[in-house]
């Protein structure tokens, strides 16, 4: 009686890379990187909510609070806000360019985005320098400690964004991205838009209200 069981032959039964191949994807029906970045951004929302929520509690509980417009350079910061919104728009153009296969456009718009972010950080450093020179240090009172905490943490996020975008830009210069492979550009862009979104709220709450 002949057996139908055959000996295990690694050459036949297992592929060369020794990993089983499934005809379905066990992950969520969305790009893993995109899933991860949105999860990360959700935690970032909570981070900034903690800062803004604490600020509102401290401010509304304080018997007196200075008018930010009288202490802060709203005109310069408004220009800086325009700049960050513009850089966010340029990021949209960069992604749009690579989706259409325009590699040169990606390098150009990504470069402008990085430039915009760098100038934003530069203006913020200038603002801090002037304020510190005038004696407005973080330990002066609650207004200044909350001001430096919120704008400082946002500034760190902008710096991280600029470094991230620069890394993506190097890849763009080398021609690493194509209309079929641009997810890294998209992820960096999502982070950059989030940084812009947070600034829109901070500008209103810290500088104008």
């Amino acid at each position: 009686m002949s057996s139908s069981i055959q000996a295990y032959d690694p050459e036949v039964d297992a592929p060369a890379h020794h990993h089983p191949i499934y005809d379905y994807d066990s992950g969520p029906p969305v790009d893993r990187g995109k899933f991860a970045i949105w999860l990360f951004l959700a935690t970032e929302v909570m981070f900034f909510t903690g800062l803004i929520g604490s600020y509102l509690v401290i401010r509304m509980g304080s018997p007196a609070w200075p008018h930010p417009k009288e202490l802060l350079a709203v005109d310069i910061t408004a220009a800086n806000t325009f700049l960050l919104i513009t850089s966010s728009w340029m990021m949209v153009r960069a992604l749009d360019a690579i989706q259409k296969g325009d590699k040169g456009g990606l390098v150009k718009w990504l470069g402008f985005t990085i430039l915009g972010g760098s100038v934003f950080v530069g203006v913020q450093v200038y603002e801090y320098t002037v304020l510190i020179h005038e004696g407005y240090l973080p330990n002066r009172d609650l207004f200044w400690s909350t001001f430096y905490a919120m704008t400082g943490f946002h500034g760190i996020h902008v710096c991280v964004g600029v470094i991230w975008l620069f890394c993506v830009w190097i890849g763009a210069v080398r021609g690493s991205y194509t209309p079929q492979n641009y997810v890294r550009v998209e992820l960096a862009g999502l982070y950059w838009h989030f940084v812009d979104l947070v600034w829109v709220l901070l500008f209103t709450i810290v500088y104008l209200m």
Binding site: W38, L41, A42, T49, L56, V57, M60
Partner: peptide, 25 residues
């Protein structure tokens, strides 16, 4: 819906963070 669903929990969490502190104010 997956990406949208990721952001939905942040809305009540944001409200908890802010309003839990509100009695102090």
């Amino acid at each position: 819906w997956i990406v949208k669903g990721l952001m939905v929990p942040t809305i009540p969490l944001m409200m908890i963070v802010v309003f839990a502190n509100m009695p102090d104010t």
